[in-house]
Amino acid sequence: MIGEPIVFWVLTVVLVGSALAVVLSKNLFHAVLWLALALTGTAGVFLLLEAEFLAAVQLLLYAGGVVTIVVFAIVVTERLVGERITQTNRRITGAALVAFTVLALIVSTVVRQPLASARPAVEGDLTRAIGEGVLTRYVLPFELLALLMVAALLGAIYFARPDE
């Protein structure tokens, strides 16, 4: 696929740029919107990796669900605080130094490893393979996951209940 490097680099720029915007934007609401962009970019990366089902899940759950929840949270807290929430950063230099050094070290490690330079072609339907895996070999974690989500749901309702 000849277009892959181009798409990859475009996605890289979008992803890194929006991620930086998420952590640096003063306006919290903007930060959430930038996060939505970053999550969409991630979905693009999944598409590039020919994992269409995951890209769809990513878009639906993250870009749809999480962003919506966060927006709700911001709106609720802003209403409670009674003023627009701005946010600032602290310890920027130290954190940037640490984060950048960690990145440099990870990259230098990764680059030196003899890893596959090309991926094998997709055999059959990946979505089908995922569905079969989830319902056969990984059925137990899958069911536990359902339990976890119910617990999270109940917990969230309990925490966010109105004052008596």
Binding site: L15, V22, V23, L103, I106, V110
Partner: peptide, 15 residues
């Protein structure tokens, strides 16, 4: 890794 480190930076710095 780049996205991860940016996220890490955000966790460390956001008030």
């Amino acid at each position: 890794a780049a996205v991860f480190c940016i996220g890490l930076f955000g966790v460390m710095t956001r008030r």
